[in-house]
Amino acid sequence: MSRPTFLLDGQPVAFDDGQMILDAARAAGRYIPHLCWHPDFPPHGSCKLCVVKVAGRHVSACATPARAGAEVESDTPEINAERRTLLQLLFVEGNHFCPACEKSGNCQLQAMAYDLEMTTPRFRHFYPDRPVDASHPEVLLDFNRCIYCELCVRASREQDGKSVFALTGRGIHKHLVVNAESGRLADTDFSAADKAADICPVGVILKKRVGFAVPIGERTYDRAPLHELAMPKTEGKG
């Protein structure tokens, strides 16, 4: 029995009943950009980088079930321009100074900006004041780069069973907090071996003393672009 298909940018993609557009596309070797989505977790649908157009409506590909015969637009100048705008908003909302960031070259936000050829943040910068937390002996937290994907929150809660992180506040006041009375990472049972320590797509959760073990220019996304490395066959190598 043949599986149902939908059209992704005009090409048929087969899917299983209940499968999300993004999952089905990945299984078929087709990349749809994403930041807050991760194969080990249910869809979060917050970054909106996976936005696609289905029957003229914008939906998150990670959280929208595929439907037989649907026409999905993803890699079009219009949608990519909208994704670029989302990236620009993320860049001006935090403090993203790549030349001074240990994560540069391994950062999915930066690699996404390369993929989408974002050359300017375009909007007015917020330059928020977000002090770093260097209290933990093994790990540094630089909140300036948080994009609220909640991957560390989910990993710590669901895989490490620790619930070290949480997002608090609403709208523009939303921010990442540490689950300790002092608010300091050192006062939690967080460890550098936790799943949450390796999951940050940007440069918030950084292991100490290894920041420049691999030099700038020889890092993950210096060697290959995100749209290749994010696909299943190379998953985990990044």
Binding site: C98, P99, C101, S104, G105, Q110, A113, Y114, D115, E117, T119, I216, D222, P225
Partner: peptide, 9 residues
Amino acid sequence: VASPLLHFD
């Protein structure tokens, strides 16, 4: 200027 020439660092 696109990848691989496009760099922020």
